[in-house]
Design a binder for these strands. Structure first.
Lengths: 117, 117
DNA sequence: CGAACCTTGACACATCCCTGCTAAGGTTGC
DNA sequence: GCAACCTTAGCAGGGATGTGTCAAGGTTCG
């Protein structure tokens, strides 16, 4: 069999066999199968698994986050909707009354301080 | 006060006051404040809130999903890393001989890792 | 002043996400 | 043919999300 079995793959990638099945179930990997249904993990898949691990703990995000990112790249509708929402910036732009922006700037300052703390 | 108070905003957007505070706490909205600290919701923010609701139940996603999308648009590093991971799809592109695909994949990974790093 | 708002903080609960484990059964290979 | 692997399916539990509610205190305004 060209490619590792699930336990071997788990061994070399640091994921548990359970998690490899879970990763497949949420659509993050699609390892091919043998005739009899055994998953086989090739070098690319193994590398991909290691990269995923790196990605998660470098940025402290969850699998569902990555899965959602994947959903966005496949669903153009969704991707556009999300973009549009962020595009509709709440960064009070033009319509700001002049007696507003002072307090707004003060608040921004407070928010920044809050972030630092 | 130009702009609605939190209860009024809740009334017209369908969110509960509790949720409006929660949405702010996870960084999805940043309503400005009055001098004394009251949140004030302007027309833009109200529209944004309605759009968010629409977004969530149209695509059946969670707030944390949208929050993560937001994180990606602000963190270029993260966005690149996620892209790179999906780019490294374990699918055999057309025209790659089966003798070649292994080294080809490995090369691609080299390139992608170089980008991400 | 007092009623009706607003603020933050915290407790509580349902529901997911992630993960391990076990069970019942098919496959592989010595 | 049997040990060691694989498969799916399910329960279980700790942690994060999403949401309500209550408490203690400041603000607004008639």
């Amino acid at each position: 069999m060209d490619g590792l079995t699930i336990n071997e793959a788990a061994e070399t990638t640091g994921w548990s066999p359970r998690m490899l099945r879970y990763l497949e179930s949420v659509g993050l990997i699609q390892p091919p199968r043998t005739e009899s249904g055994y998953r086989k993990f090739g070098p690319e898949e193994l590398q991909r698994l290691r990269t995923l691990r790196e990605l998660l703990n470098r940025f402290g995000c969850g699998l569902s986050d990555v899965a959602f990112a994947g959903r966005m790249r496949e669903d153009d509708e969704l991707s556009k909707a999300v973009d549009a929402w962020f595009e509709a910036a709440p960064r009070l732009p033009e319509g700001v009354a002049s007696d507003d922006w002072l307090s707004w700037e003060q608040e921004k300052h407070q928010r920044l301080l809050g972030m630092a703390a």
